[in-house]
Nucleic acid binder design. Structure first.
Lengths: 151, 151
DNA sequence: CGTAAAATCATACGATCGTATGAGGTCAGG
DNA sequence: CCTGACCTCATACGATCGTATGATTTTACG
């Protein structure tokens, strides 16, 4: 980003130089004003396009970035590994989340209050280092924390 | 796209008009040449930025670019079936949802507004007959609508 | 017994989600 | 030209989610 600004500054300097040079031509050889303006306009248009491109195609990262870091992960079918030190209850909640249930539905399933489910969920999210249930499901699948699809 | 060209033409016309007007001022009131050039440069820079924006953020499906409902496709790895008659854009949104992105992140990724993403999501949910994104991910995985885990 | 881990519950708040409605704009095909 | 499918965007609203904080109870263990 800072680099873009610097390059922009350089371009402006170059522009000024060209301006002086063109001005010299203008007064010395009677270059048409329209041509002069045209050059400046063309240059600035291209420059603007470049700036726009830089600004919009720079750090649009902000994308997936869910990198867990499992190594062995044998798990034929159901060992259900536990890389994140989840408590049994948290693991249960995670599995129910992965099945598409809402917190209220999970609370009903486990016969606990909504608050409890949310507490478990929040804790397991922080343990798994994710912000959303969908991310948790992704990570859980990659690490074999939840049963396999039976589609 | 055609619209962009037309607007560009209008802008050029306006520019010419302003040029004539400025030219009048220039000769009538001895407006500084530097100011004159500055105005033109500024205008063209902004115009160039706009053009660049339009050109680079138009139909660049950018990131995922998953084949919609084309048949030949039949990739050896990702047939990516489509049992729900999802539009290409809806399919894209579905995949990004399955990667754990929030609506805002999806909007940034696809360079559209939050509203658009929510509309696509709502539509695809009703097409898939689910109420939550996690359910949609489940169904999508069972039906091969999203790329396989590569864990 | 004392303690630590786990489970339970509550309240509050901001963020995000999902739906509904309406309104253009684009584009392909009849 | 008109139409339908698609994409885009806005606003509003209620529901759900996720976090933070604090508390009580249960259970296992030394």
């Amino acid at each position: 980003m800072a680099r873009t600004v610097i390059i922009f500054g350089i371009c402006m300097a170059v522009l000024v130089g060209l301006l002086k040079w063109a001005e010299y031509l203008f007064f010395a050889r009677d270059l048409a004003l329209e041509a002069y303006i045209g050059i400046v306009g063309l240059f600035c248009t291209i420059l603007g396009g470049w700036i726009g491109w830089k600004l919009t195609h720079k750090n649009t990262g902000s994308v997936p970035t869910i990198g867990p870091q499992n190594e062995e992960f044998t798990s034929a079918q159901f060992p259900l590994t536990n890389h994140f030190n989840l408590s049994p209850r948290e693991h249960e909640v995670l599995i129910l989340i992965s099945e598409g249930l809402s917190y209220q539905q999970i609370a009903d399933t486990l016969n606990v209050s909504l608050s409890t489910v949310k507490t478990h969920a929040s804790n397991l999210f922080s343990k798994m280092d994710v912000q959303r249930r969908t991310q948790a499901v992704m990570v859980a699948q990659k690490n074999g924390l939840i049963p396999r699809m039976k589609g």
